[in-house]
Amino acid sequence: MTALTLALIVLITVVDILSPPDIHLGPLLIVAPALTASFAGARATTGVALIAFAALTVIGSVRDSLTSANIETQLSAQVLVSVLIIGLRVLRDRHERELARVRSVSEAAQRVLLRPLPERIGPLHLASVYLAAEAEAQVGGDLYAAARTAIGTRLLVGDVRGKGLSSLGDAALLLGAFRAAAHLHADLPDLAAYLDGSVCWDLAQLAEQSRQARLARQAALRPGSPEAVDEGGESFITAVLLDIPDDGSLVRLIDCGHPPPLLLRPEGITVLAARHPAPPLGLGELAPAEYQVETFAFRPGDRLLIYTDGVIEARDAQHRFYPLIERVIAWQADRPTALLHRLRRDLLAHVGGRLDDDAAMVVVERLP
């Protein structure tokens, strides 16, 4: 592209010199640094601007005197516009460097908080995909984690109320609590109760901090001024907990207000809807839950697709929801990683490239 702009400078210079005296093409030389700024950095743009200025000087010396009012005006205008273009390119370079730093921090946070699921854990093959709704973010309120226990594998897939970076703290809390307790509680209901208690305690602390901050704001208000409105609301986390023993052909599940997983088999798809769903985590103090384990067959070769509501609630331009089951029926013969790649591309195409909510999907296959 730089060679193209240099060729453009040479072309404009030659044509201008050979043109009749009343035709002036020299001002068109400003196009060269403007084009360079669209694909190159400030240094390259400055270099092309200097070459364009030199070409305009050559045109002026050949066709007219450099001290004429016409050439002086063209040279002055060339300098002013070139300085403006270079300045805008410098600002863009600075913004791109800042954006690169943000991306690096986001990637580091993702590696620490949302650790990649292992491709193989026990007799299971895992694959996952995460799509954050927040611009330039790679993590948000959706979460997943896996842990080995003495008898098998435990999985957690959850969705914090809200989206993007604002829900990152609650996601970090739940993931930390799961990783610390997954191998300590033998029973799945005990683990669910522990996670609910952890979330409730953290949300209570946040609510108290919010109350103190609200009181401080109200105390700072002048008499007669309108009171501050508390924009906070209920916080909770929907989640599904799965216990998959190494020996056997079943999966145990507790659904805490989360979309039901899909069981994929060659003969069809089954929605693993819980008969006794529990409330989302974080609402235990309002409605104490009795966690009941649901048991489903999960034989070698079977696959589970676990997802968050950001997938099934994604809408296209006509406000139609994403038809997840239809897509999975068409592609369920693919391997787990290939299936998720297809779903990711199709989901983004469905919404026009930008999700309104975080979305996560996990595929679990029991190997022969």
Results as ranks from 00 to 15, higher is better:
residue 125 H to K: 07
residue 104 S to Y: 14
residue 273 A to P: 10
residue 125 H to N: 02
residue 279 P to K: 00
residue 359 A to S: 08
residue 334 D to Q: 12
residue 125 H to Q: 11
residue 95 H to M: 15
residue 37 A to L: 06
residue 157 V to A: 06
residue 132 A to C: 08
residue 6 L to A: 02
residue 244 I to R: 02
residue 7 A to G: 13
residue 65 S to T: 03
residue 277 P to N: 01
residue 263 L to M: 10
residue 244 I to K: 05
residue 193 A to N: 06
residue 357 D to K: 06
residue 237 I to S: 01
residue 317 A to W: 12
residue 240 V to Y: 10
residue 46 T to A: 14
residue 277 P to Q: 01
residue 243 D to S: 03
residue 182 A to G: 06
residue 58 V to A: 12
residue 357 D to A: 05
residue 134 E to Q: 14
residue 103 R to Y: 10
residue 36 T to F: 12
residue 133 A to P: 11
residue 250 L to C: 13
residue 333 A to L: 10
residue 346 D to K: 03
residue 232 G to C: 04
residue 206 L to Q: 10
residue 286 L to T: 06
residue 297 A to M: 10
residue 279 P to Y: 06
residue 140 G to D: 00
residue 218 Q to G: 03
residue 36 T to E: 15
residue 355 L to T: 09
residue 127 A to H: 06
residue 314 A to H: 08
residue 15 V to F: 06
residue 277 P to T: 04
residue 45 T to R: 05
residue 153 T to F: 09
residue 104 S to V: 15
residue 245 P to R: 09
residue 23 I to Q: 11
residue 100 A to I: 10
residue 247 D to N: 13
residue 167 S to M: 08
residue 271 V to P: 05
residue 2 T to W: 12
residue 231 E to C: 11
residue 55 A to W: 06
residue 203 L to V: 03
residue 364 V to M: 04
residue 76 S to Q: 12
residue 108 A to T: 15
residue 344 R to V: 07
residue 202 D to C: 03
residue 322 Y to V: 05
residue 338 A to C: 04
residue 265 R to C: 06
residue 328 V to K: 01
residue 82 S to N: 05
residue 314 A to C: 04
residue 72 E to K: 12
residue 135 A to E: 15
residue 220 A to Q: 06
residue 185 H to A: 00
residue 171 A to P: 03
residue 95 H to C: 05
residue 245 P to S: 03
residue 127 A to P: 05
residue 214 R to M: 13
residue 190 D to A: 11
residue 291 Y to C: 01
